[in-house]
Design a binder for these strands. Structure first.
Lengths: 200, 200
DNA sequence: GACAAAGTTGACCAGTGGTCCATATATTAA
DNA sequence: TTAATATATGGACCACTGGTCAACTTTGTC
């Protein structure tokens, strides 16, 4: 089983991703239709759906590309982002990294949201965005370590949800993550205080 | 100037709002198109656009209807929701009320978001949702009173943004505001602590 | 070179939000 | 009542969307 992708298919996949990237850099998401991406990549529209399943799938793949680096730093990089630091410090570092990552890719996040909001054929039963799931697991785990008495999952949703808030997303798209990062820091300090600081 | 709305126009406006309400109760937002609303209300599609300007405008009007009561309680009702209580208590009460209001109208919020996300003709320059603006002003003002040292505006966005988070919105749509309300309380307590408790 | 598996394609579909204007109706003044 | 005018109406129409599919082409393998 598992034959690898044919050479022409791989070439087209790359062409499509690069074309989508380029178009998103120049235009707002709602103007980047699948047909335009296909044309810019020099392939037929059907090919895009073949490779990525849906407009949403295309955007998701694009996001996944940008996120791999952070995922790795979290899993096996040096503290405070990687394992080893106290939960509160890891959390602060992670949220800071997320804010900066989001600032570098604000338009892409917007495009992904737009794709989700306008999709016609709801994907197979509740296939949630795996990036979000993984971030949520991480944040929620860190909170739970430092403060076992609070509803860590719910609060993790609140913190991460910030990235989807239009007024804040606009700040990020403008390339200014500092304000969000500072607000994250304030909340982490208020919530975890010193509890999580020395090896919770 | 300012002639009042013609009688037939007023009748149709009500019919459209009620029809939209009804459809939204039975179907997910993406299945409630302007055309369907018009048909259910027994009017032509053009009439809906005439009255409400856009799909977004229709949803906004629907939301405004449900929100008036809370607005009034905040402006002139008894404490802790209304004026008079300490900022921390007012904030806790307000967020609790918002969570409960959202739980009663989760599908409507979703419909409004969907309308914004799928609109074709961007409304006149940045006409932001006035309901959101007013809530944000309130929350942000209360935080600033109790904690002049933090970025109240940004944190207010974070708190209110929660309502738009899909996993939490799903809880609310299912009619269970308690978990969100509790998380709000945790954060308010952590952030404002006792500072805002006795007449900030 | 043959052959199957994999990939490509663009016409096509059902549907959308929004526009337009000839037509119908409510209101007011005479 | 009627005539005049401002307002309201409806639905064909538009440009466009994400997504499908059956006929066709290319690739990799033996």
């Amino acid at each position: 089983m598992e034959r690898r992708e044919r050479a022409d298919a791989a070439r087209n996949r790359r062409a499509i991703l690069r074309a989508a990237e380029e178009l998103l850099r120049m235009h707002p998401p709602e103007q980047v239709s699948v047909e335009r991406v296909a044309a810019a990549a020099g392939v037929g529209k059907g090919t895009v759906f073949h490779r990525f399943g849906s407009r949403t799938g295309l955007m998701r793949e694009l996001m996944a590309e940008r996120v791999r680096e952070l995922e790795q730093a979290v899993a096996e990089g040096p503290p405070p982002l990687g394992p080893g630091a106290a939960p509160a410090d890891r959390l602060a570092a992670f949220l800071d990294a997320v804010a900066r990552l989001a600032a570098r890719n604000g338009n892409l996040i917007a495009a992904h949201e737009h794709a989700v909001a306008t999709r016609k054929a709801p994907e197979q039963p509740r296939q949630e965005n795996p990036i979000y799931l993984s971030w949520h697991r991480h944040v929620s785990g860190l909170i739970a370590q430092a403060r076992p008495d609070v509803d860590a999952e719910e609060i993790a949703h609140m913190l991460l949800g910030t990235l989807h808030m239009e007024p804040i997303a606009a700040q990020l798209r403008a390339g200014r993550p500092e304000r969000l990062a500072a607000a994250f820091a304030t909340l982490v300090r208020a919530l975890l205080g010193e509890e999580g600081r020395s090896d919770g």
